[in-house]
């Protein structure tokens, strides 16, 4: 047998397993260094009496995990944060899915690219700038009021800055692109012929949407919801700047532990408790969703 003259002699020496390993190693190495190690350090911190900097003596303790028991007011704060996550995710889904449908069905070519660019544009601006620009729009006698009063001079102020809705507005703006992009990937894969078949069998638009589009878009909705819900629960910048006195979330409480109390262990413990809560929420939801999806 002679050696092949051309082709891929180099490939022969590597097994598919080795190729896979070579491809994923950089990513996992990076994740280990940048995410896993700091997270483990934080987990260890959360069981210490004080952050082990300088020459302070520290001991192991589990006391920080009783934080919700020792500070009952935090339970309400945590529930408010979960509600904030639900509101933001829900509104993102309500706006994001129709937008993704329109992008995938109604537009083609250059127009679609421009519209996509507009969806992604907020990602390229600094988050703090986005939030501060909302303060100008939402405040009393702000830009929103100016616009309304251009048509109705004596309009009462509709400024909602420093309130719970203002936080939701800021968060929806920040996270909507995730929902549009994940939903788009799901709905763009829906075959036009399936929809045509449904219509030719007499299904009206709501039925087509409920029986075909929604189930097929579900993976995108779920992926988008996961991407949005988790960071919103821990958000602290939007609540602080837009929320006024309503801007107290578990994220701001954790931030204060790090910046005001210098109590890294307590801040870490709070973070890990919230991580556990989020995992439980997802476990419950994924079970419920799986049941529903197999039914349909």
């Amino acid at each position: 047998m002679s050696e092949p003259q051309s082709g891929a002699p180099a490939r022969r020496g590597l097994s598919p397993g080795a190729v896979t390993a070579a491809l994923v190693t950089p990513a996992y190495l990076w994740l280990t260094v940048a995410i896993f190690l700091p997270l483990v350090a934080m987990l260890v911190f959360s069981f210490l009496t004080a952050a082990p900097f300088g020459n302070r003596a520290v001991e192991f303790t589990g006391a920080h995990y009783l934080v919700f028991y020792n500070r009952p007011y935090l339970v309400e704060v945590a529930l408010r944060s979960l509600a904030l996550g639900a509101w933001t995710t829900g509104i993102c889904a309500l706006i994001g899915l129709p937008a993704a449908l329109a992008l995938s069905r109604a537009f083609r070519g250059r127009t679609r690219e421009v519209l996509f660019f507009l969806v992604i544009l907020p990602f390229w601006t600094n988050g703090l700038v986005r939030v501060f620009s909302w303060t100008m729009v939402l405040r009393e006698n702000g830009i929103l009021d100016d616009i309304v009063r251009a048509f109705w001079a004596d309009a009462p102020s509709i400024g909602i800055l420093y309130s719970y809705p203002a936080i939701v507005v800021g968060l929806v703006h920040a996270y909507l692109p995730y929902m549009i992009l994940t939903c788009y990937l799901s709905v763009v894969a829906i075959d036009d012929e399936i929809l045509e078949a449904a219509r030719s069998l007499g299904a009206r638009a709501p039925v087509v949407f409920g029986k075909i589009v929604l189930p097929l878009a579900a993976p995108g909705l779920i992926a988008g919801s996961v991407l949005i819900f988790v960071p919103v629960i821990g958000s602290f910048m939007e609540p602080r700047i837009l929320g006024g006195t309503a801007g107290v979330t578990i994220g701001t409480v954790i931030e204060d532990q790090f910046t005001q109390a210098f109590n890294w262990p307590l801040g870490s413990a709070l973070s890990f408790i919230m991580l556990a809560v989020v995992l439980v929420v997802f476990a419950v939801f994924s079970r419920a969703l799986r049941g529903r999806l197999t039914l349909s």
Binding site: Y73, A246, V248, V253, D256, N263
Partner: peptide, 21 residues
């Protein structure tokens, strides 16, 4: 001392949570 600083932060955190409720 650290414990007192923590007590200050806890007190203010409790007040802020009350304002937000």
């Amino acid at each position: 001392p650290d414990e007192r600083r923590q007590a200050f932060v806890d007190a203010w955190e409790e007040v802020k949570a009350f304002y937000a409720s």
